[in-house]
């Protein structure tokens, strides 16, 4: 074997395993990238679903009672509620001025008259679920935090947005009030999709 052929053989012996290693490594990297892409896609779908959910949550029909502090808001421009009404500890108003002193179990169909549905109330003072001023990510984390949402699990939240009478009232708000930007069923579908994708939240 000439000196040149010995070098060529040695080069082949080293080069082939290195190439195999590189190929194997590359395949592994591709496989990881695929998984990451899949997770990322799932996350992206969940995040996208929540952005649509959030568009409903921050609409006046929801936000007007999901506020920090003691006083609800009203109308589409979310102005302070007249009469200085307050939530009270249980969310049903102060002892002598309960929400249901004026709000009935159905809408009162006159301009500026109180809307109504059975169980009209605000969130409790201890768990106000205040969304006003939160970023989409903060709203997301607040919504699914049982210490802030009244102890509800994700499945309980799905049930809440699906069946709660007060939630459903948002799509039947009576004279002079807009409805949320998505139809109720689409809102529920997006909410469920967000939960099914692991309820991801934006940073």
């Amino acid at each position: 074997m000439t000196r040149r052929s010995r070098i060529a053989t040695a080069t082949m012996l080293v080069a082939v395993p290195v190439t195999c290693l590189l190929v194997a490594s590359s395949l592994k990297a591709d496989s990881s990238a695929g998984a990451a892409e899949k997770t990322s896609d799932g996350n992206a779908v969940g995040l996208s679903a929540f952005r649509e959910v959030a568009s409903v949550l921050v609409s006046p029909r929801c936000l007007n009672c999901h506020v920090p502090g003691e006083s609800p808001l009203q109308y589409d421009d979310s102005r302070p509620h007249t009469m200085s009404v307050k939530r009270g500890a249980d969310g049903n108003g102060t002892p002598a001025m309960r929400c249901t002193n004026c709000h009935q179990s159905t809408n009162t169909e006159f301009a500026h008259a109180p809307p109504g549905v059975s169980g009209w109330r605000m969130p409790r003072a201890k768990t106000p679920l205040a969304w006003q001023g939160l970023s989409t990510g903060e709203l997301c984390r607040s919504l699914k935090d049982p210490s802030k949402n009244g102890g509800m699990s994700l499945s309980a939240l799905v049930e809440h947005v699906t069946s709660d009478k007060l939630v459903n009232w948002g799509w039947n708000p009576g004279t002079g009030r807009t409805t949320p930007p998505l139809p109720h069923q689409q809102f529920v579908d997006k909410f469920r999709q967000w939960v099914d994708r692991g309820a991801p939240c934006e940073q």
Binding site: M97, N101, C102, Q104, S105, F110, A111, H112, A113, P114
Partner: peptide
């Protein structure tokens, strides 16, 4: 006012000060 904005029609219904102008008889 007839729309629960003024309180003139307030009566006591089972201990609560309801506005009778918007409270249906059925309640």
């Amino acid at each position: 006012c007839g729309i629960a904005q003024c309180g003139a029609c307030t009566v006591n219904l089972e201990g609560d000060a309801v506005r009778s102008c918007v409270t249906p008889l059925s309640r």
